[in-house]
Structure formats: structure tokens, C-alpha cells
């Protein structure tokens, strides 16, 4: 049986609405209007122990709702969820002692407590055996380079330091599964790299199952073997990232520097994406126009200085995918 099994999950929220202005506010006193928002319609997927899954989708797609249901905070309206064979919401206490959760937008550490005291408190709350706790803490502190911030109150940490402390805090009780909801949001480049490195090592060396949501496609590129794209509360794709790229945006890019003003290019299956002085960026489908043929044709007809072949940026792939499925933010 898979470690995480999700079938036909559905969840609706009730959202209060109000007409704008004074009149709207007065009307709201007498009669409250509510609208139901379908956060999840029909989500199904499963995850084996030790997998590292990336969960992507536009804002409001249902990623966080899924994580909240999986972690036992929210109760779904319909559908089946089993994590380690348990139903998260009904078996909450047993369930949460085996998972770790990081919400990038919130802090689970105590704002006014020094980091080390927050760790001590968490070890007490999770009833971690003291010797194991010390060993885990020391390992995580070294791995996440937290030695220098242990005595500082959480409110004085930089975002990057805080996020590393949050990840350590989520791992003190040795969970089998780690849920990361936008763990790199707002981080600078070195902190992002550090977070990715830690996640990768936990997954490879300790076999921790990781489910990660993000808007940073480099997180996905660097970490996830498998990607689920979610939009309008539904799973739109569930595949390795390279398969997704090949299906959505198979085109290649060719950036050509000419010796003179860039010429007009009229060739079947080739599209000019950008024109800037002596440089052209061309998009083409390598299945229809083989790359060597295109280069040969260009070099024969024009004086070419430099040629660079590339793939569309991962952001473009995803944006195109959202467009194809009408999954942009409502």
C-alpha cells in the first residue's frame, strides 16, 4: 500500500461577501451573503515511501488545502485520505506525531523564545526521548548551520535563518513524512540553495518522504522527480517533470547573432520570438525542423557570428501549461 493515498478528495469553503461602500456594510449587518468556493473538486494521487513530490499550481489552485488535509488540520468534505494507513483528521494525534510540516508563510517557533528554547519545548511536546533529541538537534543544527542563531529570539532572525530553523523544528521528532508548503518563499539565493540541499539530503539519506509546494520552478527542477500540477482543485498532470516539458512545450530555442542587421526569416515551422539589433531568437519544433538543418540553412543564407541552442525557461513551460488548461488564477 502506498504511504500516502488520496482518492476523490473534495473540499469547499464558505466565503463571506459584502457589497462595497457604506450601503454594502449596512446591508451586511442585516443579511450576510456567502459564496461557496470549491477548493478541491476531485483530487486523487498516491505516493510511495521515500518519494519526493513537487506540487505546483497557480495561487488558489488547492495546493495548500491539500497539504492541510494531509496533515490533519482540515477535514475534507468527501473523498479518502490515508497516510501511513491512518485517516489524518480522525486519528490526528497519532498521525501528527509521525509527520513534519513547514509553512513558508508562518512560523511554528515561538516569536519571543530563543531558537534553542523553542526546540526544547518542541521536544517536550513531541515527547522525544532526551538522548535522541540531543543527537537529532545537534545533527540538524550542523546540517542547517544554525550554531550562531541558537541563542537568538526567533523575531530577530533573518528570513533565511528563520526558515532553516523552521525546517530543523519540523524534524526534531524524526518524522517519516515532511510537508513543505512554499519553503523557499522570499528567500535569497544562498538560502534557497541551502534549503534545497537539506531537503535533498533528508530524502536521499534518511528516506524521508517529501511533499513540497512551491512557485519557484527551480525548486522543482532541483528536487522533484515527480510533479503534480493542480488547478481549479483538480489534478491536471502527474508525471516526471521532463515528460511534462516534452508534452507541453516541445519547442527549442535558437539564439542567432548575425554580422549585420538581423534579416527577415521566413521558414516553415520557425517562429521569430525576439528581435534585437543583430540578434534573433527563434522558436522551432525539433521534430519538424531538425536543429542541424535549421542551423545549416541559416549559415548558408546569412553571415552568422554565434549560435546558441536552448530550451524554454521552466516558468514558460508552466505558464503555457496553465494557459492550456485555463488554470490561471481566478
Amino acid at each position: 500500500m502506498p504511504q500516502i493515498l488520496v482518492e476523490d478528495l473534495a473540499k469547499t469553503y464558505r466565503v463571506a461577501e459584502r457589497d462595497p461602500g457604506l450601503l454594502g456594510a449596512v446591508k451586511g449587518l442585516v443579511h450576510r451573503r456567502h459564496r461557496t468556493v470549491q477548493a478541491l473538486r476531485d483530487v486523487s494521487f498516491s505516493l510511495e515511501a521515500g518519494e519526493l513530490l513537487g506540487f505546483i499550481g497557480p495561487n488558489g489552485a488547492g495546493k495548500s488545502t491539500t497539504i492541510k488535509i494531509l496533515s490533519g488540520i482540515l477535514k475534507p468534505d468527501a473523498g479518502t485520505v490515508l497516510v501511513n494507513g491512518r485517516v489524518p483528521f480522525t486519528d490526528r494525534i497519532a498521525h501528527v506525531s509521525k509527520i513534519g510540516v513547514v509553512f513558508g508563510q508562518r512560523t511554528q517557533l515561538w516569536w519571543d523564545l530563543p531558537v534553542s528554547e523553542g526546540f526544547d519545548l518542541l521536544a517536550d511536546i513531541y515527547r522525544v526521548e532526551p538522548a535522541r533529541y540531543r543527537a537529532n538537534r545537534d545533527e540538524l543544527v550542523a546540517l542547517l548551520r544554525l550554531e550562531r542563531v541558537l541563542d537568538q529570539p526567533v523575531r530577530q532572525l533573518s528570513l533565511g535563518q528563520r526558515m532553516r530553523a523552521e525546517i530543523a523544528a519540523a524534524l526534531l521528532h524524526e518524522p517519516d513524512i515532511l510537508f513543505l508548503d512554499e519553503p523557499t518563499i522570499g528567500l535569497d539565493a544562498p538560502s534557497k540553495l541551502a534549503v534545497r540541499e537539506v531537503v535533498r539530503r533528508l530524502n536521499r539519506e534518511r528516506g524521508v518522504t517529501v511533499l513540497l509546494t512551491t512557485h519557484d520552478m527551480h525548486d522543482i527542477e532541483a528536487l522533484a522527480q515527480r510533479v503534480i500540477v493542480i488547478g481549479h482543485g483538480q489534478v491536471l498532470a502527474d508525471s516526471p517533470f521532463e515528460t511534462l516539458r516534452a508534452n507541453v512545450l516541445a519547442e527549442r530555442r535558437l539564439v542567432v547573432d548575425f554580422a549585420h542587421e538581423a534579416p527577415e526569416i521566413v521558414m516553415a515551422g520557425v517562429e521569430v520570438r525576439r528581435r534585437q539589433g543583430q540578434t534573433l531568437e527563434l522558436a522551432f519544433d525539433p521534430a519538424r525542423t531538425p536543429t542541424p538543418n535549421l542551423i545549416a540553412a541559416l549559415a548558408a543564407a546569412h553571415e552568422v557570428v554565434d549560435i546558441h541552442v536552448g530550451e524554454p525557461a521552466i516558468e514558460e513551460v508552466i505558464a503555457r501549461f496553465y494557459d492550456l488548461h485555463g488554470a490561471g488564477e481566478a
Binding site: V101, R106, Q108, I125
Partner: peptide, 13 residues
Amino acid sequence: TGSVAFDRLRPVD
């Protein structure tokens, strides 16, 4: 702020 979620993530009553 929604941090109440973390209280529900603790293996305690």
C-alpha cells in the same frame, strides 16, 4: 494569523 494550524499539528490535546 492562522498559526493556530500549528497547534493542531502537535501530538497533544
